[in-house]
């Protein structure tokens, strides 16, 4: 163990050596909660965004019409409330609220997952709705005009394009969640920030420990950002297309508009 005369890097090395696995486990919990929370939040966002983007039609019958109005008001309130309060406060209210009402203490992983999902869902609902509305209405009209139902037109034509358009925002939300799960330390979720605070407190070496912590956060978010960028490119498909039936002349490729020819 370094002593009082030891320098910054000696302490950093010491923490990496002795607490390395603890940091890694903390980072694992952070990644796990932010990834599952973002995915669940995306599913919530898709459902809520879909409902809120669907035009209300009086012809569906008065019962259905009013039911949809009520459902929408509730969803609107959900979005407003969760976007207008800090996640750290939501964590306290949800965790201690469930504990008070149901007399159970949620396992910390589950608690973290629920809080991040609900919070992310609120943000992504609006992003999904915007994504749906950003798709040219002509796309849906063409789908309806060949006989698709509203649901089919959304599933096969509108949503794939909407999701592609919001992919950057979705990735951004994931990165934000990697960072913001740190607030879950208030309910003792053993994510990266929580384990760091504990280690730092034990030796009273906050700067050294949180220097390591920030490096770990950076590596996580940086890696995730690159992977998402690569995924976006992949989803757009090749810039070129092979001329159909040209297998006999394998070199023939057309270059798409604005595309660069790759070897």
């Amino acid at each position: 163990m370094p002593n009082a005369q030891s320098g910054f890097f000696e302490w950093v090395l010491f923490f990496i050596k002795t607490q390395g696995s603890l940091f890694l486990r903390g980072a694992g919990v952070t990644l796990l909660i932010s990834l599952t929370g973002t995915i669940a939040g995306f599913i919530i966002g898709l459902a809520v965004g879909y409902v809120r983007a669907r035009p209300l039609q009086k012809e569906d019958g008065a019962g259905r019409y009013w039911l949809m109005k009520v459902v929408r008001a509730i969803l609107g309130a959900y979005i407003e409330i969760f976007r207008s309060t800090p996640m750290i406060v939501q964590a306290m209210v949800i965790f201690y609220g469930i504990s008070a009402v149901f007399h159970v203490t949620l396992p910390y992983l589950l608690a973290g997952f629920i809080i991040v999902s609900i919070n992310t869902g609120a943000y992504l609902s609006e992003i999904v709705r915007g994504g749906i509305q950003s798709v040219d209405p002509g796309q849906q009209e063409a789908a309806l005009a060949i006989g698709m139902t509203y649901g089919q037109s959304m599933l096969h034509v509108v949503l794939p394009q909407a999701i592609r358009n919001i992919l950057p925002a979705l990735g951004n939300e994931f990165v934000v969640n990697i960072k913001d799960t740190s607030v879950l330390n208030v309910i003792a979720v053993t994510e990266l920030f929580y384990v760091s605070k504990k280690a730092a407190g034990t030796y009273y070496k906050y700067f050294e420990v949180f220097f390591i912590t920030s490096c770990v956060y950076f590596v996580m978010t940086f890696t995730v950002t690159r992977i998402l960028r690569w995924l976006e490119k992949k989803m757009d498909g090749p810039e070129n297309y092979v001329i159909h039936g040209s297998q006999t002349v394998p070199d023939v490729e057309l270059i798409g508009k604005g595309g660069e020819k790759h070897a």
Partner: peptide, 30 residues
């Protein structure tokens, strides 16, 4: 609507599909 086709001024091809898929999806789903 399947029996009464429509061709639009702005084409409105499904941007997320290839030319072939554009012509396949309606046949399969409808």
């Amino acid at each position: 609507r399947a029996h009464v086709g429509m061709v639009f001024q702005q084409f409105n091809l499904f941007n997320n599909m290839t030319a072939l898929e554009n012509c396949v999806v309606g046949q399969m789903k409808v």
